[in-house]
Design a binder for these strands. Sequence first.
DNA 1: CAGTATCCAACTAGATACTG
DNA 2: CAGTATCTAGTTGGATACTG
Lengths: 136, 136
Amino acid sequence: MDTTFPDLRQYGGADAFLQACKPRTVLDIFTNKWTGLVLGALLDGPRRFNELRRMLDGITQKMLSQTLRTLERDGLIVRTVYPTIPPRVDYELNELGRSVVGVLRSIGEWAGEHADEVIAARQAYDERAKEPVKPV
Amino acid sequence: MDTTFPDLRQYGGADAFLQACKPRTVLDIFTNKWTGLVLGALLDGPRRFNELRRMLDGITQKMLSQTLRTLERDGLIVRTVYPTIPPRVDYELNELGRSVVGVLRSIGEWAGEHADEVIAARQAYDERAKEPVKPV
DNA sequence: CAGTATCCAACTAGATACTG
DNA sequence: CAGTATCTAGTTGGATACTG
């Protein structure tokens, strides 16, 4: 079986759900640790490398570089080099990149609306696990 | 900085985007390899363990077990044990679980609509990388 | 300024074997 | 039937040092 992610538009039962699995690699866009934050940092317009690094305080040079390269390769952002001294490089969302942000927003909305619920469920589950023996 | 995922509802610029970062742990729901498929397999109603294993051909016993436990702990599915011999265990989506599927659907829709675009961008990028020297 | 290169610790997921 | 336990290969991300 191809374990790629399903295209849920075509969902019509579990089988169809599972068969509609083609573009899983594309899903890396959403599973990467920094992708969402980097795209978010670009929402207001073009940013330079170190500018992004400051905005994303906590990201390493390596991860910023890697994330930007991946986003560029995936066609979500545009990298522009100005051959000045010192060099200047701008990163900017393109149309495809902006469309991803829409999806990230719906993920963020769900997380914002239900995070407490999930966290409470986890605590309840862990509490239950503490006392597995039924008191008589 | 807290590198959790932003709640984009509150977005009002990159700063707000970055500051609205609280419930990142909740995002594991979307980044897990099997979560989406398991939730999808439960869309039509309760399923038993080995039933799910057959539907998700390719998943190992360990990963199915682990994924189901995580989903149960997160409060997205309900696990019901029937103390029969042989044992019977049903897994079922609850309301929270069904709401996640909505988000997964929007991810799947984006992926379905733009996968070709992303894949083409990757190929183009890789092609460009092959001939880095500008022919004179 | 805008990156690369290298090493390493932590985590993930698969294969395999065993259990109430 | 419905799992758990263990071992291991592969991947991810961070720290650090260096470069055009």
